[in-house]
Design a protein around this nucleic acid. Structure first.
Lengths: 93, 93
DNA sequence: AACATTTGGTTTATAATATAAACTTATTTA
DNA sequence: TAAATAAGTTTATATTATAAACCAAATGTT
């Protein structure tokens, strides 16, 4: 009846990030920070967790002289998100 | 775009409890423990939180000689649950 | 040139949370 | 009478989420 809710996704900020990345080829740090309204510190930590889990890929490069952190979702991340949706539906009917 | 997810409901066990109580007139402690698979300790703590928030009402009585804890959702709890559903839909599309 | 401010983050500290383990009190059962 | 079960509660611990503090480089200001 109640499936496990993947704790990596059952977090407001990480869920928002994954949700954004599902519909975007890629998104950079500043974009994610603005869209989610998170603080940079919090976002940094949560991106790191998603990255460690293999749910997203994080690439660091430069745009001109400024650093740029770009994220994209992995196949594993997509699968996890889809499973999360199925699971939470069991709770919200 | 991303609404706040009520932290009281954005918890696997509390969400399961509320979900059950939405479709039941009332439910007792043992029933909730079995349906959710939670430990008694965890359930006790989470029921207390939901109760403090005014999302559920907890009544303690006796069934024969054994104690019996019965829960039912309040109007406030129903409203919070419905709002939670709307909010999470913003994340899962 | 020198100083302050902004940008794009990371690291660290703290407060809140979820959870299980340990405990309590009373009741059956052997 | 002793052991086991029932129905919880309290306490301890480990994990989390989050913001505050920090850092390095670039840009703007006097």
């Amino acid at each position: 009846m109640f499936k496990e809710l993947d704790p990596l996704l059952h977090s407001q900020l990480r869920l928002a990030v994954i949700s954004l990345l599902m519909s975007l080829e890629e998104a950079d740090f500043v974009f994610l920070r603005e869209k989610t309204g998170a603080t940079a510190g919090n976002l940094s930590v949560q991106l790191e967790k998603l990255s460690e889990a293999g749910y997203i890929e994080v690439a660091k490069s430069f745009l001109g002289k400024r650093p740029r952190t770009t994220c994209r979702i992995t196949a594993q991340g997509q699968k996890a998100f889809e499973e999360y949706i199925e699971a939470i539906k069991g709770y919200i009917g």
